[in-house]
């Protein structure tokens, strides 16, 4: 089967180009395995990221026939008889071949404090933070995010303006905001209230479609748009709020 793989070597290529490789076809072969075959048998200069090969690590996101997907859970059989076009994840700066720079995503992720900041600090001796199944359900789907950034490659608004906080980070901000153990929602909402926060989203919804873990970032954005809109007006009547 033919694979048209995007190549970009910053030392020698002025522009990304595509190189065609012939890889052995099998019903159970994934695109990631095909790339590993190329690297091992045909062309050791090809660069791409991967680690777990089982849709847990979120490393092998790439645009496969134009659709952002994880190479490890995308099978050659879906594209038989080929060819398949493999591009680096859209909307990100390319470092080399299929390797993109995640620096922007990581900086945004850090900015929303993606960890539980307890409402009330407790000592270990006081036991666990208990939670009801209903409280868990409020944020559970958003914990499935593996930071693969497929939703960023899918988001047309991120493509137009990379200042947009983006679907994944907003979904993760919501994951912690909606957690009953967490008390830092107000700190995170500051980022979300901005034009580059929630308000750059135009509800396209493709982010939720491409998510390999069935997280629904579009839903997180919408829930927070309502919360942010209410806060926009209610902040004037809320006691002790300075913004």
């Amino acid at each position: 089967m033919k694979l048209e793989v995007m190549r970009y070597l910053p030392e020698s290529d002025p522009e990304p180009r595509h190189q065609v490789y012939e890889v052995p076809y099998s019903d159970t072969g994934s695109v990631l395995e095909a790339l590993q075959y190329i690297k091992d048998e045909l062309d050791p200069t090809l660069s791409f990221r991967w680690s777990c090969r089982m849709a847990i690590c979120g490393s092998c996101g790439m645009n496969i026939n134009g659709v952002p997907r994880l190479a490890c859970r995308t099978f050659l059989r879906e594209y038989f008889p080929g060819p398949v076009r493999i591009d680096a994840l859209a909307h990100f700066p390319v470092e080399r071949d299929l390797v993109i720079s995640a620096a922007d995503f990581i900086a945004k992720l850090e900015s929303i404090k993606p960890y539980i900041i307890p409402r009330v600090e407790r000592d270990v001796s006081e036991g666990e933070y208990l939670q009801t199944p209903l409280e868990l359900e409020k944020f559970n789907q958003f914990t499935k995010c593996i930071n693969c950034m497929l939703c960023y490659a899918a988001c047309p608004q991120y493509g137009i303006d990379p200042a947009f906080l983006g679907p994944g980070v907003i979904a993760l901000a919501h994951r912690y905001n909606a957690d009953s153990r967490d008390g830092a929602a107000e700190e995170r909402m500051g980022q979300l209230h901005a034009e580059e926060g929630l308000w750059s989203c135009t509800a396209v919804g493709y982010c939720s479609e491409v998510c390999p873990k069935d997280v629904d970032p579009a839903n997180a954005v919408n829930q927070n748009k309502m919360a942010s809109a209410l806060d926009y007006f209610l902040r004037f009547v809320k006691p002790g709020d300075k913004s």
Partner: peptide, 13 residues
């Protein structure tokens, strides 16, 4: 963090 945190007036609209 390079992110501007100016509140948007988009909620009105």
């Amino acid at each position: 963090m390079a992110h501007p945190v100016k509140r948007s007036n988009a909620p009105v609209f």
